[in-house]
Structure formats: structure tokens, C-alpha cells
Design a protein around this nucleic acid. Structure first.
Lengths: 153, 153
DNA sequence: GATGAAACAGCCGAGCT
DNA sequence: AGCTCGGCTGTTTCATC
């Protein structure tokens, strides 16, 4: 993980469809060298995938919300497979605090959201919901900078 | 936005580096036709970008958290440019409820997180923080299915 | 990691349905 | 009008240094 690797990661976070040639120009090394580094980063589990971002509004998902759920520890083994199978759940984390799970969801309308919340409450427990008005930072990666100490991979 | 467009969007959400040829095989149409459809989807603002996902742990960001902030309405014009400039903030939304902003952040350690929270509290207002233990659904897109009514673009 | 050749994918035109 | 099929261009990959 050197300076060039970080540059490659940063560039791919900005545009995952960038060609090896473009990357090679930016990094001042040859395209085969870029290809080898990308493979290495993928195999090391640093780069975990390439995804396109979609404008949710444009495809009919007009309501975005955060739903927090109070979960008994033993309910997790039922909860996780369930929410993983719901495509509307775009992120879910187990967190500290009164509510053990915080998930981000998208739905076409508040009616659909309400249906989902009712299902969750019946099957699992108390929830707290915050509906999103606007997004000032769209989900993004972190820009890598030179660390104080190089990690030899 | 027909069945093939939805298939292309779904495939690109799974693997944004898929070649036109691969996509053409999956969709049973020629690669030029795929290229034209992708361009159309980009111009229509449905596909908004291509990003690589990074394993935050692997690159030294061991602490992930949600921070909620109580903000006076007039503070927004100062708050938004500020949090946009902090690379550790990977998402930020304005939401309903007691806390007007909910943001997702990553830091190398809890010390760095604490420093950030202190800065936010001094500059803006009360906060509530939930640290992430584990992630059961990594941030993902929604899978598109046939809607009841076709949207002619 | 660089170079050059070969394989491959992407692009633009013509012709077709 | 949109799709497919051809050839040309540019990109990726592999062998060698």
C-alpha cells in the first residue's frame, strides 16, 4: 500500500469505470503495472467491489428514512436474514445506545414505509423513524492520504 | 425505462466495471445498443456515477459511527460546507425529529471521533452518537423490478 | 516496472427490420 | 427509429527484458 496504490483507490472511488490507460496517465506508470496493482488490491480485500450510483428519486423511490429498532439479542439471528432479503433496506448497522439497530431504507411512498415499519414492530420490537428531507453528503468513500507509517502488504 | 434498462442498471450496480460485451450477453442485445442505453441513462440522471467500495477496516478506519446534531435553521449554511469538507463524513442527511442532521462518519480511532464530536458541539450544538459494532447490510442500491406502469422517458 | 505484440473490447458507419 | 453487423480504433493482456 504505497502512494500509487492510494492514488488508484482514490481515482476508482471517483470513477470506477476509468480505463487502465487513464489511470496509468494519472499515476505515471504503465497500464500493465496498474492492472497488477488493481488485482492485488482486490485480492487483499481492500477494493471490495464496483457499483453504480442511482438517483433514487428518478426511479420512483421518493421516501428515504432511518429506522432504529430495539432488538432482543436472541432476535438477531431472525432479524438479519430478514432485513437482508428486503431490497428497500440499503444499509443496516448494529450500534450502541437504546436502539440496537439503525437502518437506512428507501420506499416509493410513505404508505409503503408505514407498512414496513408496522411489520418490523410486529415481528421485532419498538422502532424510531426519521424521514429524510434532504441529503447534503451523498454516501461516499474516504479520500486516502499518506499515513504516518507505511503498511507493507 | 424498459425491462432492458432495468437489467442494465441492476448489473451495473453489482459490477460497475462490467464490459459492454458482458452486459450485451446478459441482455441479449448488441454492445452498441448497450452503450447507447447507458449513455441515455447517464444523461437522464438515473445513473449518477460509478464508485469502488473500500474495506474501511483494511485501510485503517476502525471506528464507524452515526452522529446526530441539533442545528438551528440558520446554522445550515455554515454546517453544510463544513461537513462536506470533512472526508471522514461519508453521508449526511437532514431528517425529521429532535436532531435535524444525521451523519455517518469513519475514523481511525475513538480518539479521533471524540475530537470531531467536540468540534461539532462547540461550533454547532448538541449531538448524540451511536458507534457501529457490526454491519449486517453494507450500503447498497435497490434492485429494480418491473413497475406496474412503464415510464416512457 | 517498461516495452511491444497479440487479443480483445468499444466505436462509428452502412444496411436491415 | 432503433437494432444488428461490418470494419477500424483504442485498450487490455501477455511475454520478454
Amino acid at each position: 500500500m504505497d502512494k500509487i496504490d492510494r492514488k488508484i483507490v482514490n481515482l476508482l472511488q471517483q470513477n470506477a469505470r476509468a480505463s487502465l490507460k487513464d489511470l496509468s496517465k494519472e499515476c505515471f506508470i504503465s497500464s500493465p503495472a496498474i492492472a497488477a496493482r488493481i488485482t492485488k488490491l482486490e485480492r487483499a480485500g481492500i477494493i471490495t467491489g464496483y457499483h453504480s450510483s442511482i438517483n433514487m428519486e428518478q426511479i420512483g423511490f421518493h421516501v428515504r428514512a432511518f429506522i432504529q429498532v430495539q432488538l432482543e439479542p436472541r432476535q438477531k439471528q431472525e432479524f438479519y436474514p430478514y432485513i437482508q432479503s428486503i431490497p428497500n433496506v440499503i444499509e443496516c448497522n448494529c450500534v450502541t445506545g437504546d436502539y440496537s439497530e439503525i437502518m437506512e431504507v428507501v420506499f416509493p411512498s410513505t404508505t409503503n414505509l408505514d407498512d414496513f415499519i408496522n411489520t418490523i414492530q410486529q415481528r421485532f420490537g419498538k422502532t424510531s423513524t426519521q424521514i429524510v428531507f434532504s441529503t447534503s453528503v451523498e454516501h461516499r468513500g474516504v479520500e486516502l492520504q499518506a499515513p504516518e507509517q507505511e503498511n507493507k502488504e
